[in-house]
Lab assay of single mutants.
Amino acid sequence: TGEEYIAVGDFTAQQVGDLTFKKGEILLAIEKKPDGWWIAKDAKGNEGLVPRTYLEPYS
């Protein structure tokens, strides 16, 4: 299990392996990579890379 984050903006996948999401979606951070791209999972179970700058902790 990971930590929940809320998307603060829309993001469209730029390449294969990225995860597209919309502002307000809750994402589960699976792995926090030091380069600023995290592996996350959305509510539908889709998994991919997301930019850290689009996420804020969800409580």
Rank of each mutant, 00 (worst) to 15 (best):
T1K: 13
T1W: 14
T1P: 12
G2F: 15
G2R: 13
G2Y: 15
G2Q: 12
E4S: 13
Y5E: 00
I6Y: 07
I6W: 06
I6M: 08
A7E: 00
A7F: 02
A7P: 01
A7T: 10
V8T: 11
V8E: 02
G9W: 15
G9N: 14
D10C: 09
D10M: 04
F11S: 02
T12H: 10
T12K: 10
A13T: 04
A13I: 03
Q14K: 12
Q14W: 11
Q14T: 13
Q15P: 02
Q15K: 15
Q15V: 09
G17E: 05
G17D: 05
G17M: 05
G17T: 07
G17Y: 06
D18P: 03
D18G: 15
L19V: 02
L19C: 03
L19N: 00
T20V: 04
T20K: 04
T20M: 05
T20Q: 07
F21I: 10
F21C: 04
K22R: 12
K22T: 08
K22V: 08
K22C: 09
K23C: 11
K23A: 09
K23T: 09
K23F: 07
G24F: 05
G24Y: 05
I26H: 06
I26L: 08
I26S: 03
I26N: 02
I26P: 02
L27E: 01
L27G: 00
L27T: 00
L27I: 07
L27N: 00
L28C: 10
A29N: 02
A29R: 04
A29F: 08
A29Q: 03
E31G: 08
E31N: 11
E31H: 12
K33D: 06
K33Q: 09
P34N: 12
P34V: 10
P34A: 14
D35L: 05
D35R: 03
D35A: 05
G36R: 03
G36W: 04
G36Q: 05
G36M: 06
G36D: 06
W37N: 06
W37R: 08
W38P: 00
I39W: 14
I39N: 04
I39C: 09
I39Y: 12
A40P: 01
A40C: 15
A40L: 10
A40E: 00
K41N: 03
K41Q: 10
D42M: 02
K44F: 14
N46I: 08
N46C: 08
N46Y: 08
N46P: 02
E47W: 12
G48I: 03
G48E: 01
G48A: 02
L49E: 05
L49F: 14
L49W: 13
V50L: 03
P51R: 08
P51Y: 13
R52F: 13
R52Q: 13
R52N: 12
T53D: 15
T53R: 13
T53Q: 14
Y54I: 08
Y54R: 08
Y54Q: 08
Y54N: 06
L55Q: 00
E56P: 01
E56S: 10
E56Y: 10
E56H: 10
P57C: 08
Y58H: 09
Y58W: 12
S59W: 12
S59D: 12
S59H: 13
